[in-house]
Amino acid sequence: MRRISWGTALIFAGLLAFMVAAVGADVFASNDPLRQSLLLRLRPPGTATATAYFPLGTDDLGRDLLARILYGARASLMVAALSVSVSLLVGVTLGLMAGWFGGWVSIIAMRAVDTMLSIPAILLAVLTVAVLGPGFFNLVLVLGLTRWPRYTRVAYAQTLQVAALPYVRAAEMAGCGPGRILLRHVLPNIAGPLMVVATSEFGLMILFEASLSFLGLGIQPPYPSWGSIMSVGRQYVVRAWWLTAFPGACLFGVVLCVNLFGDWLRDRVDPRSQGR
């Protein structure tokens, strides 16, 4: 076993901080993220009044930026986790079936994958969310149902390999049905590479949620999201730098940690890829 380096520890710490902030947003936020106060608009970080303290300042409606960032973390985590789960389920099911049954199933599935991948992801999401209407539920649905192709590719390729292994063939001979073999024998074998893809998708989904919210197509006001806070920040970029700087830094930090974690995971799952 390799010892965990300082760098790796830092990555884990970053991810942990993100999760804790998201889950415990109500504990850490001393102010209500939705309470407006037009008297306290666009106050810089460190503003204190008789009743409240705003360590990161306030937004255009006088709401506490720190509280909104914490609740934004929650939105970000939930959208990413849910949409990754949906697309993982869809993509892996399709990939397993394509890899196991081959023939027409695989031809159609893999053509569908190629087609989905020919529409640039963010545009596909923008179009679909725009048609369905914005909001948390639609966001998860759209991201979940448009982001499955990469899992399908990996699951398909890996299933082809694993299905040819002697012990899987033996299980088939012994009369195990395809469902049982795929779940019991194939899935555990391909879990590693799938985790690597899921991690990179997780980072991407955090970015997508923020981007769509930035464009006004994601989490809708008054609920906070890092993207929509920055969209307000853009209007006040000259007067209130904190509205851009803080949520952006959080977003950057989290995505960086997720990407680094992805690299770390890939090195463990596939030691040959070391350093690539």
């Binding site: 981007s211 993207g227 853009r234 970029v237 730098w241 700087a245 950057f252 995505v255 990407n259 680094l260």
Partner: peptide, 18 residues
């Protein structure tokens, strides 16, 4: 390179504007 890959374009855009 890693930073470039993790930078949300709208944030880096806004930071540059700032």
């Amino acid at each position: 390179v890693l930073a470039g890959q993790s930078l949300p374009t709208f944030w880096s855009g806004l930071l540059m504007i700032l």
